[in-house]
């Protein structure tokens, strides 16, 4: 069993995180925007568009932050 400080192992963990995070923020952003469109406000389709854009920004920001934190340690 590799130690949790093993650079290869920890690096693999970091790498796998970023990809799924991008997808998840897109899904959540789009989902939130879509539900605003369909249940709360008559803004179709702009809620979905805005939500997707916000989700994309959030995903890229998270990836950037994760990479930055990794660089420091």
């Amino acid at each position: 069993m590799p130690s949790s400080q093993d650079p290869l192992f920890a690096g693999l963990g970091q790498a796998v995180r970023i990809g799924t995070n991008l997808l998840a923020t897109l899904m959540v952003g789009g989902g939130l925007g879509w539900s605003i469109d369909s249940y709360l406000l008559p803004t179709e389709p702009w809620g979905l568009v805005g939500g997707l854009i916000l989700g994309l920004i959030a995903g890229i920001r998270n990836a950037y932050r994760t990479a930055q934190r990794w660089d420091q340690s």
């Binding site: 799924t20 997808l23 899904m27 916000l54 989700g55 959030a58 995903g59 998270n62």
Partner: peptide, 21 residues
């Protein structure tokens, strides 16, 4: 604030989808 809310809500989603997928 909306961006942070989205990235907070995405945490359980990405956690579960990653393992399952």
């Amino acid at each position: 604030v909306p961006i942070e809310i989205i990235s907070q809500l995405a945490r359980p989603v990405s956690l579960s989808v990653r393992l399952f997928a």
